[in-house]
Amino acid sequence: MPIKTWELDPNFKNEIMSEAGGERLASCFQCSTCTLGCPIAEIVPGYNPRKIIQMSLLGMRDEVLSNPDLWICLICQTCTARCPQDVRIADVMGALRRIAEREEEAGKLKIDSPRPLFDKAFQHQLKKFGRLYDMGLAMEYYPKKEGSFIKGMLAMMKDYKDFGMRMFLKGKMGPLGGGSPVKGMLASKIKQKDVMKKIFEELGEEGKEK
């Protein structure tokens, strides 16, 4: 489909370049090295980091920000390591994700991926405990992803049925996990939890809303 030039946003590239990680966007000369080495491009038809960069430079703001492909990038850094222009594609992806999340929070966009919900649940757990608590993360993420508590619990049981039992039998999860009678079942908390709260409130997305 031809590009509608009157719908392009000439400021989009500046918006990305002022976001942490997006600074080097404009150096891209479209060689496609990034796409050729990308493990996702090998599996998912149409996935193309070079094209995302090109569309960003052209100012196709809506198409880029609503593209579900943004959320399947592994941030594996293969493209970044190989790019002859040091575009830092993986970091650009991160910058685009954060812009898209802000748009969604402002009600201007609907993100077609559960990834932001997972990231938010993770950050929330981290803010609360200071460390990753697998069980708490799953209990928070699945209901949000599935849209209700019951559906979430059912989906979680399906994903964790075999895996959870396997980890339990190896003493890695559940009441005997982690080498003590309660680890794995309960959150491992740090003492200075207040510092985590301060970090997320001052620097995280919550801080920006203020």
Binding site: G94, D119, L126, G130, G204
Partner: peptide, 23 residues
């Protein structure tokens, strides 16, 4: 002592990652 999570792959804002690890 009392180490906190590094942010793993789920904290995408680099400034938050820097703060977590500064501690």
């Amino acid at each position: 002592e009392d180490w906190n999570c590094c942010g793993a792959a789920e904290v995408e804002d680099p400034r938050v990652v820097y703060a977590l690890n500064a501690r």
